[in-house]
Simulated scan of single mutants.
Amino acid sequence: MNRRRPSRSATADELLTTLQHLTARARKEVELHQARVELAEALQRGMLPATLPALPGLQTAARYTPARSGLDIGGDWYDGFLLPDGSLGFAIGDVQGHDVEAAAFMGQIRIGMRAAASTAADPGEVVGRTNDLLLSVDSNLFATCTFLRFDPRTWELHSARAGHVPAVWLSAEGHSGIAEDEGGVPLGILAEQHYPVTRRRLTTAGAVVLVTDGVVEGPSFPIDAGLEQVREQVAALPHATADELADEVIRAARRTGHQDDAAVLVLRHDAAPGPG
């Protein structure tokens, strides 16, 4: 029996048509991915502050690097703003995920925390109200964060932590450490949570360095080791400016081989002024 073989021209036409369909589909997928990346980047740019507040005797600086996977964007954020009583509010946090949803959720947290801080002076209450607000929007995401309130009249720093990485502190004399302050559960998990507040009067000059876990944790690099690395970095620069410290600390993220996005927030402060 003789089998009829397709002509060469017919086979070539079919292959060309198939290739055209595949190329068109690939182009659409690339365009869709690019659109999602651009949307995520626009969300991130719009949600991170262009500047941070500062006062005589208080320098502030922050840095952010994107994730190395997903959309190269994520939910890490930092913030700083003036409060109605003249105090300054600062926040840093990390939302689960590296996509548009994470970036949008980060924006909700930032806006919600600013609103809560405008009516509540206690950082624990600010974090608690933000937590309840996020639960009310019924998202399946959660976030960690630290919120600080700096009072320029008393030179006190009050802070509350929701499952977030501990801060690193530095004194101008070269002493340093990791502030293992008591904290509560991450935001968006359980309602009506209590968040303990740590109060410090900044009696000596120094710095407070806050990071997200993308700075101190990598695929084979545990958080404890990363925090110790940051402590060593800042201890070696007791007289560095806030910008210099932020630049140095963000480099730690490259050393851990991180795949998460990463943020750093630095408060560089003088000693509390004496009486009168």
Score class of each variant (00 low, 15 high):
residue 92 I to Q: 07
residue 95 V to P: 12
residue 95 V to M: 09
residue 96 Q to G: 08
residue 97 G to P: 08
residue 97 G to D: 15
residue 98 H to K: 15
residue 98 H to R: 15
residue 99 D to H: 08
residue 101 E to T: 15
residue 102 A to Q: 15
residue 104 A to I: 06
residue 106 M to G: 14
residue 106 M to H: 13
residue 107 G to W: 06
residue 107 G to T: 05
residue 107 G to V: 03
residue 108 Q to K: 13
residue 109 I to D: 12
residue 111 I to T: 15
residue 112 G to F: 04
residue 117 A to I: 03
residue 118 S to E: 10
residue 119 T to L: 00
residue 119 T to I: 03
residue 120 A to Q: 11
residue 120 A to G: 03
residue 120 A to P: 02
residue 121 A to W: 00
residue 124 G to L: 02
residue 125 E to C: 00
residue 126 V to W: 00
residue 126 V to T: 09
residue 128 G to Q: 02
residue 128 G to L: 04
residue 128 G to P: 01
residue 129 R to Q: 05
residue 130 T to D: 02
residue 135 L to P: 09
residue 136 S to K: 05
residue 137 V to H: 14
residue 137 V to L: 14
residue 138 D to L: 13
residue 140 N to C: 06
residue 141 L to A: 11
residue 141 L to G: 11
residue 142 F to E: 09
residue 144 T to I: 06
residue 144 T to P: 02
residue 145 C to E: 08
residue 147 F to G: 06
residue 151 D to R: 06
residue 152 P to H: 09
residue 152 P to F: 03
residue 152 P to V: 09
residue 155 W to S: 10
residue 155 W to N: 10
residue 155 W to Q: 08
residue 156 E to A: 14
residue 156 E to K: 07
residue 157 L to S: 11
residue 157 L to K: 03
residue 160 A to D: 02
residue 160 A to L: 01
residue 161 R to F: 01
residue 163 G to P: 04
residue 165 V to I: 14
residue 167 A to H: 04
residue 171 S to M: 03
residue 171 S to D: 07
residue 172 A to N: 00
residue 176 S to N: 05
residue 180 E to C: 01
residue 181 D to I: 00
residue 182 E to Y: 01
residue 182 E to F: 03
residue 185 V to A: 11
residue 187 L to V: 05
residue 188 G to A: 07
residue 190 L to N: 09
residue 190 L to I: 12
residue 192 E to Y: 07
residue 199 R to M: 10
residue 202 L to H: 05
residue 202 L to G: 07
residue 204 T to Q: 08
residue 206 G to V: 04
residue 207 A to H: 07
residue 211 V to D: 03
residue 213 D to F: 00
residue 216 V to F: 11
residue 218 G to N: 14
residue 219 P to S: 15
residue 223 I to P: 11
residue 224 D to P: 11
residue 224 D to W: 06
residue 227 L to P: 09
residue 228 E to L: 12
residue 228 E to R: 15
